[in-house]
Nucleic acid binder design. Sequence first.
RNA 1: GCUCGGAUGGUGGAAUGGUAGACACGCAAGACUUAAAAUCUUGUGACCAUUACGGUUGUGCGGGUUCAAGUCCCGCUCCGAGUACCA
Length: 917
Amino acid sequence: MDYNFREIEKRWQQYWIDHQIYKVTEDRSKSKFYVLDMFPYPSGAGLHVGHPLGYIASDIFSRYKRLQGFNVLHPMGYDAYGLPAEQYAIQTGQHPAITTENNIKRYREQLDKIGFSYDWSREVRTCDPSYYKWTQWAFIRMFHSYYCNQTQQARPIHELIEVLSKKGTAGLDLACNEPMTFTAEEWNTKSEKEQQEILMNYRIAYLGDTMVNWCPELGTVLANDEVSEGLSIRGGYPVEQKKMRQWCLRVSAYAQRLLDGLDKIDWTDSLKETQRNWIGRSEGAVMHFNTSQGMAFDIFTTRADTIFGVTFMVLAPESELVKGLTTDEQCGAVEEYIIKTKKKTERERIADKSVSGVFSGSYAIHPFTGEQLPIWISDYVLAGYGTGAIMAVPAHDSRDYAFARHFDLPIIPLIEGCDVSQESYDAKEGIMINSGFLNGMTVKEAIPAAINEVERCKVGYRKINFRLRDAIFSRQRYWGEPFPVYYKEGMPYTLDESELPLELPEVDKYLPTETGEPPLGRAANWQTKEGYSLELNTMPGFAGSSAYYLRYMDPHNDDVLVSEKADSYWRNVDLYIGGTEHATGHLVYSRFWNKFLFDLGVSCEEEPFKKLVNQGMIQGRSNFVYRIKGTNQFVSLNLKEQYDVTPIHVDVNIVHNDILNIEAFRNWNPEYKSAEFILEDGKYICGWAIEKMSKSMFNVVNPDDIVEKYGADTLRLYEMFLGPLEQSKPWDTNGIDGVHRFLRRIWNLFYKEGELGVTDNEPSKEELKSLHKLIKKVSFDIEHFSFNTSVSAFMICANELTALKCSNRTILTDLTICLAPFAPHIAEELWHVLGNEISVCDAKWPIWNEEYLKEDAFPYAISFNGKSRFVLEFSEDTTNEEIEKAVLAHPNSQKWIEGKSPKKIIIVPKKIVNVVI
RNA sequence: GCUCGGAUGGUGGAAUGGUAGACACGCAAGACUUAAAAUCUUGUGACCAUUACGGUUGUGCGGGUUCAAGUCCCGCUCCGAGUACCA
């Protein structure tokens, strides 16, 4: 019987469905293990061969854990809301729900072919009302919560209302937009609307006027992580800064906890570092400056020690302070400058490194020297960070230095021996000079000393600042979760939780209304609350993906997001596999969202993802043919130098091992119907290059084609064999024959000349050794995510057992179990061939026996002065004296000793003998 | 600019400080075939030698630690990823 993977894979996939092999329940008699993939956005292009890489790795791990006796939760779903479906809807009028549904169907077919062990009964889709009910529910809870900085947790807002009505703001430390102080009497005399406005300052989900990334092309605002270098991540359209009233989530309140939590989770250092940079904690001081105008303002600095080097102040053009600090005679110039900077898109502003600015006309007063410091306005200061104003120390900050040089402002060096004639001295090292009470201190001593003095003189206070901004949560789009919000006298109120889900209405077009309202403004007869109008924005993409891992625990529960029973059993994700591209988006929002739910008592773990592994990207490997210019003649790779040629991308699917299938090429494109070829050795050899996998490069490899040609097991093994999981690497179908041959070799251990040839005799010593070496290696490799080397270990073992002509039942049984996580179909088949009734998924992972791994003799590399020369074998109990004697007496040694007597002989047991001459 | 990775044959990649190049692709030779494919066997870093045994050299570059360095330390070069007027 031959290895007929098509028949085998179809049969066992059906068997797994029929027997509900992958369905899991909360079985408290077993330890749980939760393995999660980042769920995909179902795009119209379908899966290419790069997408399943992480899924295969997580599937191997889940299956391995299950074989070890764990109760494994391994679910899958779809991140179904997103821009591409909506853009497609705008162009074609096709409802995004239909596009999405079709794409999901396609994804599911593709995934099913690969043989994953997902419990599909737990599937979630973010666009499904029964799912987004809980996204809306979490939003309502955020709206009705505030964040207490003293206890570092979210609390229900009614508790705050009670405190405010009794004590006012006295003694409170709350996360807010603007610090406020008022008494209980003041609070109690305010109207409902005024009270609501005040509460908005404290809510975790709040409506705020903030500078947002506005993308005119997409007609929506975007979050910081959706923008890179002034362009939208989706589509690459320019993004500009605009002030808008938007829903925001107070992620910044959780900054310290998000930072601290990183120490408790098992993620890679680089990913943690990326999050630390994104959170951007910096310790420093807020300092208070009075001005010549009488008005005062605050700045933030991390270098309070450089206070004596301040020679001017700078405000961001968007800063509220600009108006009050501009003198009448400078008014025109300032206005002109602000208009000019506003016109620049974010991208232009970043690209434009030239220095610009304008003098406001007023002066700040130095808190220690009383000196007058001119106040400038420049776009190198950002409104969104700190207070939107800085003290400029040109000697020790490169940006201030460039500005000072450009406008010819004074530069005062503060560190002994530093040379500021060409550039600023930014390093925090050296001895302070020109700095009053700080003189003689090192910079490291001066920083805290300066802050202490600032606090003592009451000109400022110690402050920790975070770069992490609140998340902007509104999108002016159709295809997203509607907000469960209605407006009464211009103030937002949430729907009652019993009214959820608020379903997405139908619209006639997926474009903004004529009056510029979001697409939901087109919804006719949308349900309304007592005649009040509903919120027309929708939630962003990350809303639905922020708590999906909790919903998988209890996906059909209509009463709660997740029951206490399910949550307390599954707790959090033990292993999360996905790409690094979510480092500052999804992985921050999810942690925030989960911490909020933790504060609410909904989630019992503060961190959602205990261990996280990033799989690398799979790039494309493009193939080229070389057309001789002006002809329809193509020349093979190694002859192309003799001609003037144009390289042309050719579909990698009609190229095998870089050899072009000429017939397929002629049929590929009518243009090449009559193409002629200059061959080498009768073949046309193509050139190649590593590029992004994309349609336009004709280098997309579809997993379906690989499965059709080689089978799912070969695909799974080959994806792992390609290289280390975490590394980016190009897909190269060349080489897949190797793993396919390996599977056939395994098959041939069972079948000899078409007959099943498994025997029941005692396994030999060599067979046991080969098998147990494999068990040990594979167990170790899976735990360390070194799947590529475990595939190699399988190949070595198969080669050894083939050479030993092994057909032993006990050996083959354990081999089959080891293979099951990697190649489940063939393993299931062979497992049943061996006479087992249950699924191989429920077998028991074998444990290696060190007894079998014992060596009779160990090869010792015999080295002279550290250079290996030859190999001798010694048994474990050979004494050092005997080894020395044997080495020196060996005829090969004479050449290296050259008659001298060795100075020293180092013997490392089982490894090496080094003779130092 | 800053942060974090990485650099090993023709290719993908192995290697707890201890025989560098496992395993696989490719290539070459051979076996089986009328032939091809498939399969199997052998060889395969480079250079030198070849009757055999063998020798020299070799993990981006330059130093260092060590009996011993691809691996550890210091200084570079190049490549990749993330981030960026964050005060």
